[in-house]
Design a protein around this nucleic acid. Structure first.
Lengths: 340, 340
DNA sequence: GTGAAAGCGCTAACAC
DNA sequence: GTGTTAGCGCTTTCAC
């Protein structure tokens, strides 16, 4: 049933002009006399003609496709960021070819290759590690890569993260000022730079005050694992009076366990703080004190780096840190005299 | 810095074979003597050659790209579904070009056009309405369209939804059996087929028991608007003793308002039920009684319809309903003698 | 200004 | 089996 393909050749014939004329009408930069343009546009509309982007890409070498790799949408931070990123790129005339890396744990390289086969103009890689072999390939192919919310010690990548160490340190200071004495940490996946930096900053904050971590378990950035980590922590005799959970998503799991299973009150019996400030953190059931990752600013920075490098291949990769404020809510006891 | 593009021509030259030989090596169906294949593969690996998918698409007429349009990731149901969909399609060798329709309220057509320009093999449209003009274009271009979690009275579309009327009716019966007498409804966006069907089924369930709706406000499927709708409802003198909120996402907002602002207990003072069974519904802070939309089954159905129609253009569009169970948790008073 | 011609990287007939 | 050829739909010199 599919009607015949409508090509520029057909439009040209019908409009009584050359194919190049049609092309020029649909090419933003080109100049065409108003008269011809109108004629061509009219015929094109009648026939429902639209330029074939793929054919154009073949010749221009630009696909206007950005590949986005993201690992898990379970943590609200990521869908939120992808939505913003997609919107921002659309505004610039780009489109997003998405790849979910969740299922394919080991084979990220294989699948990243597939996405590169689409001649993407750039790659955004969120919360996933890239092999240096692949980095090599991207570099050789001239495909700029931006690591989002993760950094890697490789000069070929640009990266955009929040200032995780500074943010976590601020959390430590806040808890200490609140008079907490047994401060514990539930870590995320230990292979992640975000985890490393957050924990590092937090510990630095503690030791600056002459304190040490009371306890530590690992939640791997997953809800269920974080629940288990919380159970472990709170089944011990000497319970913490404050817990820094490495991201909000896990902090919700921890709060649920602590309140429902252990039967403690938050923040009266134990203070819980997280990191990210995802929308749910503001919901009154959690009302979580946390550090904001300004996803808006992070996305803006990502897009800017991307476009700059696409337009000028000689631009050097850039490491960008976005600072984020401490968001004080009700899940942690506040220091004396703290006013809302 | 970008090295020279590695094309099949280059590989052919280096391997001492023809370009077609190279092409055949990289074409799944084609037969090539093992000897040649090895030789070609070796050279290709050395040079880092990979076929240009865009060029291939141009000639085969198949891009192996599926366009996905989705309106808002705020409601966890959608990122979850997109993740599953993307995974399923990847498994079949397709990739997802995503388009977020959130910002572009009015201009959905314009932007859908853009996505079609990429010669997508099919379109999945989630929670968004398509103009009939665009439907026409897709039809003419032979692009199958599957409406996801929304239906439309247009025979040209396939659609996959849960059986919203049946599910909502089940909720009504459950609330009635639980002895509730003042049952209210907080609606989603009234232009949505899901809203229409859910409310219809719910009302049918009520009237089958000789009951009528106690009250009704509108939350438009948005968190903040749902909060406002709940405030309106609970500021009236005669409060409901049960509320069916049109989806889980809004139900969380309603529970927050009811517990934190109004100061009622759930379910002792008021029962709240939702629809979707998103992961958060199982979190103990909400523990929401709801109807499950089996996103897994919905995605499977979507993929199947898609692939069938791609492979055989003559297949007729299909309307699929996926049934989902009532998930009983703690947010609503249970009928006498109900055992867990 | 405008059209003719070449060619982007690839596949698919068709000869050999 | 293998290479030669044509051409997918488009952009882009380059003459006119």
């Amino acid at each position: 049933m599919a009607t015949e393909r409508v090509t520029s050749t057909l439009v040209a014939k019908r409009a009584g002009v050359s194919q190049s004329a049609v092309s020029r009408v649909f090419t933003p930069g080109a100049s065409v006399p108003l008269k011809t343009a109108e004629k061509v546009r009219k015929v094109a509309d009648e026939l429902g003609y639209r330029p074939n982007v793929l054919a154009r890409s073949l010749i221009t070498g630009k696909s206007r496709i950005i590949g986005v790799v993201v690992a898990y949408f379970e943590n609200q931070f990521y869908p939120d960021a992808v939505e913003r990123l997609s919107n921002a790129l659309q505004r610039e005339g780009y489109h997003v070819l998405i790849f979910m890396a969740s299922q394919t744990a080991g084979n990220i390289d294989k699948v990243l290759s597939e996405i590169i086969d689409y001649q993407v103009d750039a790659l955004v890689v969120a919360s996933v590690a890239m092999s240096s072999e692949l980095a090599e390939r991207c570099d050789a192919a001239g495909i700029p890569v931006v690591l989002f919310n993760r950094s890697q010690d490789d000069e070929r990548f640009s990266s955009v993260t929040s200032d995780n160490a500074a943010g976590a340190r601020r959390l430590a200071e806040f808890l200490i000022a609140g008079g907490h004495e047994r401060i514990a940490h539930i870590a995320g996946w230990e292979g992640a730079s975000t985890q490393r930096d957050r924990e590092g900053g937090f510990l630095a904050g503690l030791s600056a005050a002459g304190m040490r971590l009371h306890d530590r378990t690992v939640g791997d950035f997953h809800f269920e694992i974080a629940q288990a980590a919380a159970r472990d922590m709170f089944n011990k005799p000497e319970r913490p009076d404050a817990v820094f959970v490495a991201n909000d998503h896990m902090a919700f799991a921890v709060m649920d366990v602590v309140r429902t299973e252990v039967g403690l009150r938050v923040p009266e019996d134990v203070s819980i703080v997280g990191y990210d400030d995802v929308p749910i953190a503001a919901w009154s059931s959690y009302d979580l004190t946390t550090v904001r990752q300004r996803s808006n600013a992070m996305v803006e920075a990502t897009v800017e780096v991307l476009l700059t490098r696409i337009e000028n291949a000689e631009t050097a990769p850039k490491q960008i840190f976005i600072d984020g404020p401490l968001i004080v809510r009700g899940s942690a006891r506040k220091p004396e005299g703290w006013d809302e």
